[in-house]
Design a protein around this nucleic acid. Structure first.
Length: 825
RNA sequence: GCGGGCGUGGCGGAACUGGCAGACGCGCUAGACUUAGGAUCUAGUGCCUAAUGGCAUGGGGGUUCAAAUCCCUUCGCCCGCACCA
């Protein structure tokens, strides 16, 4: 009988579907487990990355179920986004239709992999029943002053024709299409994620189950620094310029000040002077430079004196004011004090423009020609040329100078973050409309909650360039003000799709609720996500936004938890020939083909076996063949045994032979290894290899024993348990064989096996004999032997005696169960 | 520059708290069965050596009875951030 994987897989997928086998509801009597994989964009085709991601999640879900947990394992679609809109423009299909078609196809593909999802919880972010709550949550943020609109210079992707959040600009290019990003002055909606900067940073301590790398990346992104805001006066003006510095101890060394060319004060300071035109031209030139050139360390410092002077509030010194390319408007205050002696950037600037370099810190010990620096001295040291602070250690000086400034009212200590507010407006059609109405009298007014959702109109021109397509729908734009009932217009921008994915894990707990986003009793039962699995590419974007949302909702009493994801697993990429699989490289392998050729179980097994989960996986056709052969070997083994193994007996019968004991040992050893590898480390690769070893050992047991001497109880126990352990990994085959050998209930309702410590005790164990750390022999000793006994046995061995010869035995180390090391001289 | 990680056979990768380096799989070699096999089974497979034995976890040094594992140093690679004041 041949292993007909395709019939088997269809049979079980059909059965799971009709039985609704993976539907789960709250059950207070059971401990819950929330297994979640990042939901996909429904592109219409799964790729190997999906297969890997979702296979891992499926093993976790099925395994935890067998461990007795009430496992929620939902799936849905991150279905808003540009591809649908672009397809609509290119082929004239409606975005909703295109999206729903794709979802249909992908849902079938997921089912063909045998993934154990509770499809009753399926959601799609582009479904009005879902985005109603995206909009509702927007309004909650709005009411809590966490959503606001402001005009600012924002990132604009000319290819996607929309603005982007800072997080979505990668190396100066668009996160989606890599097109170089421009700056545009626009009025846009933001979420005040900066209000949560400190908590996003601090609460990372709670994320014990997160990879260090991801935490480090977020820390880096939030970029906290402690410093001082110091206010400088401007000569001949009542204007003030505030700078942020982490080095107030160097303030006596300030010899110039640099403002960002876009700094709002610049135009006032140069007004009607000879510097007005050059400053304007300088700014124009900077704006035209790409973000990369502008912010590269390699770019030469460049600046322009603007004819004005600032006053150092510490010593009243007059210092020239510049605008310069290396000062960024959106970090700190957009202005820096130049301390060339102690900051390398300022040093380069000062050298170029021949500005004084005044040392105010000298090294603690070694003598250094502090008057003739060849580069900035950035280390700590002793303060000099600093008035009453002279002689003070600069490290202490940071605090003392800051205190002094606070006393005099010229400065204050401040924590500064690199993190910017999250820009969520998008000038595109296929997203959740921002539920705001503009009224000439009342301003920006929230759409009343009972009017949600604000549904996407269909009478739009999608091809409109440069502004939101929603603006082209007369019926959508014109409305009445909810407050004064006068004529008003709707906001025409839609929300960043990352907003939709910032709370979907909460909605999964209560997916069809039409009165609330999610009921607290449900989220309280299921949240937090116990295991989240997805790609590292979301380390900052999605994972930080989701954390922010969860915290904001927690503060509003809408989320039971402050952190959404207890444990995070970031899986590696699937590569072929050393590169990420991509259509443009032509190195893709289609999951559908692999499933057709070898079946879903083989596909799953391969992606789990070929590499540990976090590491990149190199695709190997031969590796796939190997997994297929392994499943065939199991098929043959079990079908050949089906006639004489008995499901009623799963314990050894009568007296056990050495072979019986060995098989039992191997079985319980495998149970232990597979259990530990899956539950503690998610090392599916080594778990699978342990099952392979077990299968090998069952085969050789049959070989050695011959049919007449097989202990049916021992063999049955081994095969049954092997199938149970195979069930989360290759669920179709395991189900089929389980049923074939006459076992009752579904294999997935079985309890995960426990290993029997008794079976792991051997009568005799092999230990290694070393002389001076070198392997010389191996011997069997009784497993209960004491150190002294083992030492005695070993020293009496002829081979060992011969090897020791005339040398003196200095020391004998005995590690029971492992080795004996004889140290001789 | 800062942060995270990696380096083990021909390949993917094992090795728990320091205790037999190379589990498992792929590939390869030989053999068996077969009309045939790219199916299946058996045996072998880190390198050097005829063998006893020696050498091996990027390189060098150290700690230890014992190091892939701990420490120092050095080289190489990957990823993230980066004129952050």
């Amino acid at each position: 009988m041949k292993y007909q994987f395709s019939d088997i897989e269809k049979k079980w997928q059909g059965r799971w579907e009709t039985e609704n086998a993976f539907r789960r509801v709250e059950d207070p009597s059971k401990e819950k487990y929330y297994a979640l994989e990042m939901f996909p964009y429904p592109s219409g085709n799964i790729h190997m990355g999906h297969v890997r991601n979702y296979s891992m999640g499926d093993v976790v879900a099925r395994f935890m179920t067998m461990q007795g947990y009430n496992v929620i394992h939902p799936m849905g679609w991150d279905s808003f986004g540009l591809p649908a809109e672009n397809a609509a423009i290119a082929h004239g299909v409606r975005p909703d239709k295109w999206t729903n078609e794709n979802i249909k196809i992908m849902r079938e593909q997921f089912k063909s992999l045998g993934l154990s999802y509770d499809w009753d919880r399926e959601i799609a972010t582009s479904d009005p029943h879902y985005y109603k709550w995206t909009q509702w949550l927007f309004l909650q943020l709005f009411k809590n002053n966490l959503a606001y609109k402001k005009k600012s210079s924002v990132n604009w992707c000319p290819s996607c024709e929309t603005v982007l959040a800072n997080e979505q600009v990668v190396n100066g290019g668009c996160e989606r299409c890599s097109t170089e990003v421009d700056k545009k002055e626009l009025e846009q909606w933001f979420f005040k994620i900066t209000d949560y900067a400190e908590r996003l940073l601090e609460d990372m301590d709670m994320l014990k189950g997160w990879p260090e790398k991801v935490k480090a990346m977020q820390q880096n992104w939030i970029g906290r620094s402690y410093g001082t805001m110091t206010t400088f006066g401007v000569e001949g003006s009542d204007k003030k310029i505030t700078v942020f510095t982490t080095r107030p101890d160097t303030i006596y060394g300030v010899s110039f000040m640099v403002l960002a060319p876009e700094h709002p004060l610049v135009s006032e300071l140069v007004k009607d002077s000879e510097y007005e035109k050059p400053a304007y031209e300088f700014r124009k030139r900077m704006e035209h430079l790409s973000e990369i050139t502008r912010t590269s360390t390699e770019t030469e410092k460049e600046g322009l004196f603007i004819g004005r002077y600032a006053i150092n509030p510490m010593n009243g010194e007059k210092i020239p004011l510049f605008i310069g390319n290396y000062v960024l408007l959106d970090y700190g205050t957009g202005a820096v004090m130049g301390v060339p002696a102690h900051d390398q950037r300022d040093f380069e600037f000062a050298v170029k423009y021949d500005l004084p370099i005044v040392p105010v810190i000298k090294p603690r010990e070694e003598e250094m020609d502090i008057e003739n620096l060849s580069q900035a001295f950035e280390a700590e040291g002793i303060m000099i040329n600093s008035g009453s602070f002279d002689g003070m250690d600069s490290k202490e000086g940071i605090d003392r100078v800051a205190e002094y400034m606070e006393e005099k009212g010229i400065g204050e200590r401040k924590v500064n973050y690199r993190l910017r507010d999250w820009l969520i407006s998008r000038q595109r059609y296929w997203g959740a409309p921002i539920p705001i109405i503009y009224c000439d009298k009342c301003g920006a007014v929230a759409v009343p909650e009972e009017d949600l959702p604000v549904v996407l109109p269909e009478d739009v021109k999608l091809t409109t360039r440069g502004s939101s397509p929603l603006a082209t729908s007369e019926s959508f734009v014109h409305t009445t003000c909810p407050q004064c009932h006068g004529p008003a217009t709707r906001e025409v921008d839609t929300m960043d799709t990352f907003v939709c994915s910032s709370f979907y894990f909460l909605r999964f707990c209560d997916p069809v609720n039409s009165c609330n986003a999610f009921d607290m009793d449900k989220t309280e039962y299921w949240m937090p996500v116990d295991q989240y699995i997805g790609g590292i590419e979301h380390a900052i974007l999605h994972l930080m936004y989701a954390r922010f949302f969860t915290k904001a909702l927690y503060d509003m009493g809408l989320s039971p938890v402050e952190e959404p994801f207890e444990n995070l697993l970031t899986q590696g990429m699937v590569l072929k020939d050393g590169f990420k699989m991509s259509k443009s490289k032509g190195n893709t392998v289609s999951p559908e083909e692999i499933i057709a050729k070898y079946g879903a179980d083989t596909a799953r097994l391969f992606v789990l076996f070929a590499a540990p989960p976090e590491r990149d996986l190199e695709w190997s056709d031969q590796g796939v063949e190997g997994c297929f052969r392994f499943l065939n070997r199991i098929w043959r083994l079990v079908t050949e045994c089906r006639g004489f193994i008995n499901s009623d007996i799963s314990r050894p019968i009568g007296k056990m032979s050495e072979e019986d004991k060995e098989l039992r040992f191997n079985l319980h050893h495998a149970i232990k290894k597979v259990t530990v590898d899956i539950s503690e480390r998610f090392n599916f690769n080594t778990a699978i290899s342990a099952i392979m070893e077990l299968v090998n050992s069952i085969s050789s047991y049959r070989e050695k024993s011959g049919e007449d001497k097989v202990n049916i109880g021992v063999l049955t126990e081994a095969i049954n348990n092997m199938l149970v352990m195979l069930a989360p990994l290759a669920p179709h085959l395991a189900s089929e064989l389980w049923e074939m050998i006459g076992n009752g209930d579904s294999i997935h309702d079985q309890k995960w096996p426990h290993w029997d410590p008794e079976a792991l005790v051997k009568d005799e164990i092999e230990i290694v004999v070393q002389i001076n750390g070198k392997l010389r022999d191996r011997i069997f000793v009784p497993s209960g032997a004491s150190k002294e006994e083992i030492q005695g046995i070993v020293l009496e061995m002829d081979k060992i005696k011969g090897l020791i010869g005339e040398k003196n035995v200095v020391k004998v180390i005995v590690v029971p169960g492992r080795l004996v090391n004889i140290v001789v001289k």
